[in-house]
Simulated assay, not measured.
Amino acid sequence: MRNVLPDGVEKYAESPLFSEQTVPEKLISEHDLKAGVWGKLCVIDGTLEYHIPGGSHRSQLLKAGEYVVIEPQQVHFVKPVRNVQFKVEFYR
């Protein structure tokens, strides 16, 4: 899984801070980002699972202070583990 944004992208938006109680249904279901949009999933507190489903299903456990880069059009979903706070930054 990637943890470096490509050169030349700039941040243009950021989600609100989510917790295990406020995470939108869309984020815990399979979804993707639009073409040309990169995401940076940042865990502020607690623990969050990041999943890339499919034939070679991959997952990563993210803890406070860690992040993962989400590629454009990459199907993924998250699963809160416990007492989590996280946000998504958007780049293009």
Rank of each mutant, 00 (worst) to 15 (best):
I28C: 14
V9P: 01
E25L: 11
K34M: 07
T22N: 11
E49N: 10
G54N: 12
I28S: 09
Y91M: 04
R2Q: 14
E30Y: 04
T47K: 14
R82P: 13
R2Y: 08
L48E: 07
K79S: 12
D45Q: 08
S15P: 02
Q60S: 14
Q60K: 15
G36D: 05
G46T: 04
K34R: 04
F77T: 10
A64M: 03
K40H: 10
Q74M: 10
P16L: 14
P72F: 04
G39F: 05
Y91S: 05
E89W: 11
D32G: 10
Y67I: 00
E30P: 08
D7G: 02
N83G: 12
K40L: 05
E25Q: 15
W38Y: 06
L48G: 05
Q85D: 06
Q73H: 05
G46N: 03
L41Q: 03
A35P: 03
A13T: 06
L41M: 11
V4A: 14
V81M: 10
Y67H: 13
G65C: 00
E20T: 08
I44Q: 03
G39L: 01
E30A: 07
V23F: 06
C42M: 00
S56Y: 15
S56N: 15
A35L: 12
V68A: 13
D32C: 15
V78F: 02
H76S: 07
A35K: 12
V88F: 04
H51E: 01
L61K: 15
G46I: 03
D45K: 01
Q85T: 04
V69C: 10
M1A: 13
S29W: 12
N83E: 12
D7N: 15
V84K: 10
Q73T: 11
E14I: 14
S15I: 01
L61W: 14
D32T: 09
L62G: 02
D45I: 07
T47M: 13
I28G: 02
R92Y: 01
E66R: 07
K11T: 09
V69P: 06
L41E: 00
G65V: 03
K34V: 01
K63D: 13
I52E: 06
K87M: 12
L33Y: 05
L33V: 06
K87S: 10
S59A: 12
V69S: 07
V78L: 05
P80L: 05
E25N: 15
K34L: 08
K11M: 10
K40Q: 06
P16K: 15
W38C: 03
R82N: 11
C42I: 13
Y67V: 07
M1F: 14
K40P: 08
V69K: 13
E49K: 07
K63T: 07
M1N: 09
V37P: 10
P16I: 14
L5T: 02
T47Q: 13
A35I: 07
W38I: 03
P72S: 09
V23L: 15
